[in-house]
Amino acid sequence: MRINHQEFFANDLSYIVRSATEGDAKNLSEVRLQCDGETENLDREKGEAYIDESGFQQIIKNDTESSCNLFLVAEVNNRIVGFSRCEGNKLKRMSHKVEFGVCVLEEYWGYGIGKNLLKESINWADTNEIKKMTLSVLETNEKAINLYKKYGFEVEGILKNDKILSDGNYYNTILMGRFNE
Rank of each mutant, 00 (worst) to 15 (best):
C35Y: 06
E139Y: 07
V81I: 15
L33V: 00
F56E: 01
Q58G: 00
V17C: 05
C86D: 03
R2K: 15
E120C: 10
I3P: 03
I113K: 03
K115C: 10
I3W: 06
T140I: 12
N41H: 15
N116D: 02
G82K: 08
I174N: 05
W109H: 15
W124Y: 15
V137E: 10
E99V: 11
E129V: 05
D36A: 15
N77R: 09
E129A: 12
R18Q: 02
Y170A: 15
D52Q: 04
R79F: 01
W124F: 15
V137N: 10
T173D: 08
G37M: 09
N128K: 14
D24Q: 05
L117I: 09
S14K: 15
R32P: 00
E154M: 08
D167F: 09
S121L: 10
G23K: 13
T134R: 03
V102M: 08
I113V: 06
K119V: 14
N41A: 09
K143N: 09
D162L: 00
G152C: 07
G101C: 11
C68N: 15
H96N: 11
K119M: 13
N128C: 11
L42V: 14
N69H: 13
N41R: 05
N146M: 10
E154C: 05
E7P: 00
F153L: 04
M133Y: 01
I164V: 11
Y108K: 01
Q57V: 12
V81D: 08
D63Y: 14
S121V: 05
E142H: 07
I158F: 01
